[in-house]
Amino acid sequence: MMNKEKITSIIDFYLKKFVEVNGNTLPNKIEAEMADPNQNQDEEWRIWFPIASKVTDNEIKEFENRLGCEFPEDYKIFLKHKHFYELYILEASFFKHPVNSWKESLGEMIFHENLKDDLIEKGYIPFANWSDWGLLCFDSNRNKEDNNYPIVLWDHEKADEMEDVFNDFYNLISEDDIENEQPL
């Protein structure tokens, strides 16, 4: 369970940092459980707060069945830790994870019609944007025995090429920990 503690600690660190610099505002509708209850409802930009995840193992299993493959265990820890609208670690901007619509939100990104032929049908499962280059994807074609897939970068300008960027999800999350000496 050491991975779980480290992953949750790093997620908490970056979400806390984001809130401290007032980055947690969006010009969108915010789900009630995540919205600032003290904010004037007439303001255009809405304040949101990360909250404990309500994602269950059964919900993840349902999503995996729709996807046709299982997520890595470390990514499941990620999904079951916090709900958020924005989370940045390294150059990764993780797909939003709102409390009541996380499956729809994640599904919109993963099953996006423009990506279906380039990614999903080839075994690449997107989960985050990478800077302005493209998408980080699990390469479900490799390490199938433990679902600890390598992470590849799909560059939107080189749609037919994949570049290995991280050994696995844990490596992505913990890489920044090494560079910035994040607390555990």
Rank of each mutant, 00 (worst) to 15 (best):
A32S: 14
P183H: 07
E163W: 01
I77F: 05
I30M: 01
W133H: 10
S131K: 08
P126W: 00
F169T: 06
H97L: 05
D132E: 13
R66F: 09
F13M: 08
N114Y: 08
S131P: 02
I47G: 02
K80E: 09
D42R: 09
F111G: 08
G123T: 00
D160E: 15
H81Q: 09
K54M: 07
I77H: 04
D155Q: 04
E121C: 09
I125N: 02
S105H: 07
N22L: 09
M162Q: 11
G107K: 03
K96P: 12
F49R: 02
G23N: 09
I77C: 06
N171K: 09
I89M: 11
E161Q: 12
N24V: 05
I178L: 12
K122W: 03
D36L: 05
F127G: 06
E44Q: 09
Y149F: 12
A52L: 14
E20F: 06
E31P: 08
K4V: 13
G123R: 01
L115V: 00
L15T: 02
E113Q: 13
K6E: 14
E59M: 13
G134I: 04
N3Y: 11
E31Q: 14
N148V: 01
F94P: 10
L184T: 12
D12I: 02
D12A: 15
E121G: 06
E31Y: 05
L67K: 02
I120N: 08
S140F: 01
P98T: 02
D139Y: 00
E70Q: 15
T25Q: 13
P37L: 04
Y170C: 05
E20D: 15
N24F: 02
N180E: 13
F71W: 08
K144Y: 01
I30H: 00
E5I: 15
L90P: 00
Y88W: 10
I7W: 05
S93M: 10
Y14R: 10
N180H: 13
I173H: 04
M2W: 01
K96L: 13
M2L: 15
F63P: 08
F95I: 09
K61D: 15
L119F: 01
G123I: 00
S131Q: 10
N180G: 11
L79D: 03
K17M: 07
K76W: 03
E33K: 13
I110F: 01
F95V: 08
S93L: 09
E31I: 11
F49S: 00
N3M: 08
K103C: 06
S101M: 12
E108S: 14
D132A: 06
I60K: 01
L119Q: 01
D139P: 07
A32R: 08
R66S: 14
E43I: 07
I89S: 04
Y88P: 01
V152S: 08
L172D: 03
T25E: 12
P150C: 07
G107E: 11
D155L: 02
W154A: 13
H156P: 05
P50G: 02
E5Q: 15
M2N: 15
Y14S: 10
Q39N: 04
M109V: 08
K4I: 11
K144E: 09
V99E: 03
E5P: 05
S174Q: 06
N58I: 12
N129Y: 14
Y85P: 03
W130Q: 06
E86C: 13
D177Y: 10
F138A: 04
K17E: 12
E179K: 14
H97V: 02
S9M: 05
P183C: 07
